[in-house]
Amino acid sequence: MVTLASRSRSVRRTANKPKLVNGAPAPNPVVRALKGIVLLICCAAVAIPFIGVISTSLADQDQITKAGGYVLWPSHPSFDAYAAIFRGGAVTRATLVSIGITLVGSLLSMAVVALLAYSLSRPGSFGHRPLLMLVLITMLFNAGMIPNYLLIKQLGLIDSWWALILPPVVSAFQVIIVRAFFMEVPREIIDAARIDGAGELQILTRIMLPLSKAVLAVVGLFQAVAYWSAFFNALLYINDPDKWPLSLVLRTYVVDNTAIGTDLPGEVVPPQQSLQMAILVVSLVPICLVYPFLQKHFAKGVVVGAVKG
């Protein structure tokens, strides 16, 4: 029988009991406010530079001069810097070149890395230890600029887009990630496939690759970013500016365009900072567009590769 006194105790107990949110005690409002402020500062630390980049790309010389370099909010937005970049079609053409190189390079890289990683992941395969050492050693030593140039020259690849695609097609780091992933695939699955009469190529294409979408997405994204951003190989191997990728064309604006004005009437040169920031925006857009679609695989693939060694 429930008495009034016992009911009253029960109510008091309920009143003292902390409020639960998702099964956990709700935090103190002060702590919540502090956490909010800290998170806000963290967000601002990330967002403000981005806002600064976009704002400066839209600012004119007067605003940049008044601000002493970089503008946080443009009072009179101007697209002169973007117009200057896209004038003449060089940037548009270079964008298409970069897209082509990135697509072909990334796909080729995924194929080659998968093949190499698979062969190195099979313990009984011929000479896989020395081959693995050869791959690993490239992480420690680089042939150097001039030997690489001579090799490309002797292969007759000067002024060819293959000079940009082939040298970075195999990345030792990515071979290690994919190899580690392949080695974690249960041996029983491979044995079952072999009993069913599958050869090595069938095991790779029918069993391993379908199981490895996440890690291949990581390889693809890493390589795509690398191909998209690379300018140095193009600088050395491509003489024809019509074949330059976007990264090299944009570099001519970022690094060298030192003009801050002109004495010629009619020629308004956007300020250097605006040009530089507009270029940052232009070069970031494609990667920002692709990243959300690959993010899920990317996070998963990196974690998988990281914990299975």
Binding site: M145, Y149, L235, V255, D256
Partner: peptide, 19 residues
């Protein structure tokens, strides 16, 4: 004319000489 951004010119020149 082979044009190279000035900041990277020394690299380009070195490779051309090497060639």
């Amino acid at each position: 004319i082979t044009m190279t951004p000035s900041a990277d010119y020394l690299s380009k020149l070195s490779t051309i000489i090497a060639g």
